[in-house]
Nucleic acid binder design. Structure first.
Lengths: 224, 224
DNA sequence: ATTGTATATTTTGTATACAAAATAAGGAAT
DNA sequence: ATTCCTTATTTTGTATACAAAATATACAAT
């Protein structure tokens, strides 16, 4: 496995995209960006028309989205955008915090010095964005940071599962960082992560990352 | 959430099964039971004929199986049964061991006395099957035991992820238990689990369950 | 024989057509 | 008006038909 490559995902993703995949991506975006609110019924006829495709690839897309947990298909009764209960979100964050804990420990064991260096640079970028108050770039870098930790843990299954949960939570996490005071504390947690990374202290890194996630829960729990 | 119900899964599964789901189940079985070996190309025309359905539900089934990680769809080039590399299996077991560790700890915190009692009974049954040398019933009870622990951890996301990984590993695990000496040591690990459960010692239970999985790796690693 | 190229065949992807549900609409009876 | 039943209408599920790739085959040139 080529772990030191900077773009392992992109390399495989070049595979020609089938219509089905494009549709899945578009619907996914609609859901994440809130154009299709949780609980909404997914109207095949209008959506199909809007996307300009036939029902066949559309329905295949729905199947994959259902498997990803973004959509619920109720046989003969249509599909709806999955609505997360507070309990759903808690269970995801609880699980995710343990996954990140594991990822943190593994990164310290398995990543090369250069890779750790790369993570720290990312962290510095984030900090700069925070100081400038550039919320969206910060958010993107944050995503990138976590997904890179996940990569560098060198456990493909772990990476997949984390990516899936992140995708489901995407909308909610964005919400969580929208209040400035929360932002400050999130940043300070990231400072701790960077410190642990520098020392390659897997135990500490794992702890902070887990804590970070459980704090996220506190931030969002009342908005669900 | 109804956690004390003995059959929460079955309750929702009653939902009328669409053809697509039946096909997915059948193909899944074919894969798990080894009738469709890893790496085999999935020939739509023959499979479709064999199952007596049209291509539409069949292809939808393939999509869900792909999302579950059992099948790989290469655009325009057909689908193949996913072949697990040693590294794949290791990454799954590494992840799974941490998930079970988490599940073990949570069960000790969250399950009722009656539920723990139920687990212990299951354990006794397993032991009886082991003494009689009834391999298949033991295997089934073992599956049941682990999936029940997963249930009683009261974290739906955790349960889903575990179930998915278990499904992917099913064939391999079956293999792992096929040698008698391995069986004995697996049983002794289960004894330790039961002991920890009786004391509600989450830490200990988590440790044994994780260890149990990593031993599984040792058992199977040369057969992949 | 080997390589290359053109053509035929198969396989895959998508659209449409038809069947079977489910839902909505329209009365009749109370 | 409310409930029930019957009949449209819409929506969902599945099969088939057509289009576009990919693969295999046949043959010529070297």
């Amino acid at each position: 496995m080529e772990l030191s490559s900077p773009f392992p995902m992109e390399a495989v993703a070049i595979e020609k995209q089938t219509l089905h995949d494009q549709v899945a991506n578009r619907i996914r975006d609609l859901i994440i960006e809130g154009h299709l609110a949780p609980g909404t019924r997914i109207d095949e006829t209008t959506l199909v028309e809007q996307l300009g495709v036939s029902r066949t690839p559309f329905r295949e897309a729905l199947r994959t989205l259902a498997a990803e947990g973004l959509v619920i298909i109720r046989p003969s009764k249509g599909s709806v955008v999955r609505k997360l209960t507070a309990q759903d979100v808690f269970s995801m964050l609880e699980l995710l915090s343990h996954l990140e804990e594991l990822a943190g420990r593994l990164v310290c064991q398995r990543a090369s010095d250069a890779e750790i260096e790369g993570l720290l640079e990312l962290h510095d970028d984030m900090l700069a964005r925070y100081r400038e108050g550039d919320r969206l770039p910060y958010y993107k870098l944050n995503q990138e940071f976590h997904s890179r930790v996940s990569q560098l843990a060198s456990n493909e299954s772990l990476r997949e599962v984390q990516a899936n949960i992140q995708a489901r939570l995407k909308r909610i996490r964005f919400l969580g960082n929208s209040k400035p005071d929360y932002w400050a504390s999130a940043v300070s947690e990231h400072e701790q992560m960077a410190a642990a990374l520098r020392k390659r202290d897997g135990e500490a890194l794992g702890q902070v990352m887990a804590q970070h996630l459980m704090n996220t829960w506190d931030r969002v729990k009342d908005n669900i």
